[in-house]
């Protein structure tokens, strides 16, 4: 009962936040005056277009129309600058694919590596293996992702010439996201994306597992006569995973958001570069839709993470006083 009430409350709050943020975005963006052509036929056409699209109506009226279109038809508007006359839903869906694939690869690599490193460090606590892993974790958590993107690009791409330095376009790679050429060109961005995730995950697993290993139920398990391996695997590791799994969930949601900076360095035509382009070109509908996309991801990931604690660990009761 607690749980249901809590979930409903959180979802209600999500929609409230979403609505408020969308209103702010819409009003603020519409207040901006783009540069309009001043002379000739083009100016006339542009002004007529703006009139026809209702850009000259009061902003709140425009907002009401915009909201009505979204609610009744799930219509997020039209892109005028980035993909001329293209539906915003399609523009976003197109850009989402490369972001999604790149980040999915990166997550698939990072999760096992991160957990493994964390477990090794925790089991060998205060031994050389732990010191090495902990130092590396500290390094990779702190150093900004673009710095190792540069390193990877320079060393593996330019100097050793092992991989292409940029993501190849869909056309060059034979029209498929899964062709060998495409996968090869994805190696560097995936690598650059993975360092930080691996370090984050390993740090978390190490901290949780260290705590679990020194807890009293482990002492009990050993006292009962379980071997160290058995006790670690079936008691400590499982308990340590409880806080780690929500983190993995938030990583999965982070996939959708992607990393703008890695996309820019490796010329990925993804959702991050779409957002930046929409600011530069002031493509209203794309900008609002992309902003709301990011907002939705960040809002819903915080809810899902909080809820997953409750589902995974029966000791935690959501919303309980």
């Amino acid at each position: 009962m607690y749980m249901l009430k809590y979930v409903l409350k959180r979802i209600g709050l999500l929609f409230l936040s979403f609505f408020v943020i969308m209103t702010i975005c819409f009003v603020l963006v519409k207040l901006l005056q783009p540069e309009l052509p001043m002379l000739g036929q083009q100016a006339k056409a542009e002004l007529a277009r703006r009139e026809a699209l209702g850009y000259n109506k009061p902003i709140l009226e425009q907002y009401a129309i915009y909201l009505r279109n979204i609610i009744t038809r799930w219509d997020w508007g039209t892109s005028w600058k980035i993909d001329y006359l293209c539906d915003v839903r399609k523009v976003i869906a197109d850009r989402l694919t490369p972001t999604l694939i790149l980040n999915a690869y990166s997550i698939l690599i990072s999760i096992p590596v991160g957990i493994l490193l964390g477990v090794i460090a925790a089991l060998r606590k205060n031994k050389p293996a732990d010191h090495i892993i902990s130092t590396l974790i500290m390094l990779f958590v702190s150093v900004p992702s673009y710095v190792y993107a540069f390193i990877v690009q320079y060393l593996l791409g330019f100097r050793l010439n092992l991989f292409p330095v940029m993501l190849s376009s869909l056309y060059d790679a034979g029209g498929s996201w899964f062709s060998p050429a495409m996968i090869k060109s994805m190696a560097l961005p995936v690598l650059a994306l993975s360092f930080g995730t691996v370090a984050d995950l390993a740090r978390y697993v190490r901290a949780e597992l260290t705590e679990a290993l020194t807890s009293e139920y482990m002492l009990l398990a050993r006292a009962k006569g379980l071997t160290k391996t058995r006790a670690t695997l079936s008691h400590a590791l499982i308990n340590a995973m409880v806080p780690v799994l929500p983190m993995i969930i938030s990583l999965f949601l982070g996939i959708l958001g992607g990393s703008m900076i890695i996309e820019r360095i490796f010329a990925v035509n993804g959702i991050g570069s779409l957002y930046i382009k929409s600011i530069e070109l002031l493509d209203y509908d794309v900008f609002i839709a992309a902003s709301m996309f990011y907002t939705f991801i960040s809002l819903s990931s915080s809810i899902l993470v909080d809820l997953s604690y409750g589902f995974l660990d029966p000791r935690i009761r959501m919303g309980a006083k």
Binding site: S17, L28, L31, L32, M260, I279, T295
Partner: peptide, 21 residues
């Protein structure tokens, strides 16, 4: 609640809007 709503806005959007405006 005010803090929740403000905290929900991705920072990149806040920064963008401030720059534009």
């Amino acid at each position: 609640r005010i803090a929740d709503i403000l905290g929900g806005i991705p920072f990149i959007i806040v920064a963008t809007l401030f720059q534009l405006h």
